[in-house]
Amino acid sequence: VIVIGGGDTGADCVATALRQKAKSVVQFGKHPKLPDTRVGDNMWPEQPYVFSLDYAYEEAQAKFGEDPRQYSIQTTKIVADKNGKLKELHTIQMEKVKNEQGKFEFHEIPGTEKVWPAQLVFIAIGFEGTEQPLVKHFGVDSKNNRIDATYGEYTTNVEGVFAAGDARRGQSLIVWAINEGRQVAHEVDRYLMGSSVLPK
């Protein structure tokens, strides 16, 4: 199993793969490994950006003897076998550097290409917002790629159109999506039926 994406969702994918008896698990992240201690531009009271082993990585290390994360790595190609089944991923190492404007860019490092055998890939990269063609088709208002809907009511500017979860609040935890999903189901039921017995 290969997990593409270094965040919390990726960690959950690693843990789930372990519990489903994966033969091996690797997680690809685009950023470099965090330092063991705070660096100069990460002073208190900011959250410390330091290396740690979350629950998923502790479990992987206990099972396989090493941290499953690969840092500063970019997938360049996904390859299938002759039957169309996933066979391997091709990667290259990346370098994070500041450009002349002081912004970070990622540059490929020639000669660091690698082929990884794989049977299953989870893509756990950042949510960039709702798909705008669908939003525009319905005439729904959005801001910063998020549907404009009031928390608790989930109504949009279009009668009978509701929005909840990441589409409304932006990238967040699954527990928020579940919570808002239950609440919006109640609101939709109330809209359609005049009242609702669904939990909120």
Rank of each mutant, 00 (worst) to 15 (best):
S72F: 06
A185Q: 02
T9L: 08
V197W: 14
Y55G: 14
E187M: 00
A167H: 02
R146P: 01
L192G: 07
R182L: 10
I4P: 01
G5N: 06
F127K: 06
A177R: 00
P35C: 03
N179T: 14
A11S: 09
A11G: 06
P133I: 04
P32K: 09
A163I: 00
L86N: 03
Y57T: 08
A167Q: 01
H31A: 15
T130L: 10
E153P: 01
G65I: 08
K63A: 13
L86H: 04
Q27V: 11
N83L: 11
A177P: 02
Q74C: 14
I178K: 07
G65Q: 11
A60I: 08
I2C: 02
S52M: 15
R38E: 10
A15G: 06
K136Q: 09
L192T: 11
G152I: 00
A80N: 12
E128Y: 07
L120C: 06
D189K: 04
K82H: 11
Y191W: 09
M94K: 06
I109D: 08
Q74M: 12
G126Y: 05
T155K: 03
A124G: 04
V184H: 00
T91Y: 01
V197P: 14
K33V: 13
S52R: 15
K96S: 13
V158W: 05
V158G: 08
G152E: 00
G10K: 02
F138C: 14
V184K: 00
E95R: 10
A167R: 00
N157W: 11
G6W: 01
K63P: 07
Q70M: 13
G181L: 00
M43C: 15
V121M: 01
K33T: 15
A80G: 13
K200R: 14
Y191R: 05
G65W: 08
M193K: 12
P35G: 03
G102W: 07
P45A: 05
K87N: 12
D81K: 04
D67R: 07
L192D: 08
S196Q: 13
G40L: 15
K85R: 11
F51L: 12
E128L: 10
F28A: 06
D148G: 09
E46R: 14
E46D: 15
V121W: 00
P133T: 04
E180G: 00
N145R: 03
I123E: 09
L86E: 05
I4T: 05
L134K: 07
M94S: 08
G40M: 15
Y57P: 04
T16A: 09
F104W: 11
M43Y: 15
T150P: 04
E59Y: 04
N42H: 07
P68L: 05
E159Y: 06
V97S: 08
T156A: 03
V25Y: 02
L134M: 10
D12M: 13
V197T: 13
V26S: 05
N42F: 05
V25A: 05
G111R: 09
K200H: 13
